[in-house]
Amino acid sequence: MSAWLKDTTTLQAGAAVAHHGVDIFALLRDQSGSQAAQVTAAGAAWLAGATPYPRSTLAQWEERPTAPGVLPCGSAFDVVNVPALFGRRMLERLWAEGPGSGPVATHRGRMLLFAAPGTAQRLPSLLAWEEWGTGGSEESGGSGDARGPVPPLLCHGTGDAVTVPPLTCASSDGGPRWVVAPDTRSPWLPGPDVLLWACVRVSRSAASRASSHSIFPRPDQDANVYDVSRRR
């Protein structure tokens, strides 16, 4: 394994303080929300483990830590790809009312939620079984179970690949970036049931806002600070 993996610091400028005995994982959890977007060496090892040749992948990242990568899905993780606004609202629900999330990234106006293997196959089936289509509350047949639309979800599993952000934070140039970066060799990953719950909660919340009598829409809040220690 690459010698770079022996360093458990974050892959960012200023990480040299970890060589003086600072617990970088505790630092990651205790610092501000921006720290959650920093990949650690252990997180990079987990990402590389999704490839057939993790050592070669790590060697490439060591040479080009600011370049995005492409990783296969289906073994270490699946990815649920949703529109950015809907995905942000899912994250707010997951962290405010649920178990939290796994790693999350943004790319080209979409949000990539890393999920447990098998989620890509099961989540669309669960949504279909729940009859959660693109319609609104009229689909509930007047039962009072108001629901808003769930946008089409792109589920990436076995045979698919996704672009992941660089290991180090790049400038905000519109490229891929981490919202919740991997920070351990065994990150917790939500399954299809957890993501279905988040979709349902966001859908019902959207329907509730649409039925409000206020003439001014409720402004979207800024991104929450995600306490990654909660999902341990």
Results as ranks from 00 to 15, higher is better:
Ala13Met: 03
Ala84Ser: 12
Cys199His: 10
Gly21Ala: 09
Ala44Gln: 14
Pro187Phe: 03
Gly102Cys: 03
Asp145Tyr: 09
Arg93Thr: 12
Trp197Gly: 05
Pro117His: 03
Leu195Trp: 13
Gly102Thr: 01
Gln31Thr: 09
Ala198His: 05
Asp220Lys: 14
Pro72Cys: 01
Leu167Phe: 06
Cys73Lys: 00
Leu27Ile: 03
Tyr226Leu: 04
Leu195Gln: 08
Met1Gln: 11
Pro117Phe: 07
Val17Ser: 05
Thr40Glu: 13
Cys73Ser: 00
Asn224Lys: 14
Val164Ile: 14
Ala50His: 11
Asp7Gln: 09
Trp132Tyr: 07
Gly87Thr: 10
Glu139Lys: 02
Cys199Glu: 01
Gly191Pro: 05
Ser171His: 09
Ala198Trp: 07
Trp95Ala: 02
His107Ala: 00
Pro187Gln: 00
Pro151Val: 08
Gly74Tyr: 07
Ser171Cys: 08
Arg29Trp: 06
Ser186Gly: 04
Ser186Arg: 12
Ala84Pro: 01
Ser101Pro: 03
Ala210Thr: 01
Gln31Tyr: 14
Pro152Ser: 07
Asn224Gly: 14
Ala206Phe: 06
Val180Ala: 02
Pro192Met: 00
Arg218Leu: 11
Ala45Val: 08
Gly74Met: 08
Pro103Ile: 02
Arg88Lys: 07
Ser203Thr: 10
Ser2Asp: 09
Asp193Ile: 11
Arg89Cys: 00
Leu123His: 06
Gly148Asn: 07
Ser208Cys: 07
Gly100Gln: 14
Val82His: 01
Asp30Ala: 15
Asp183Met: 06
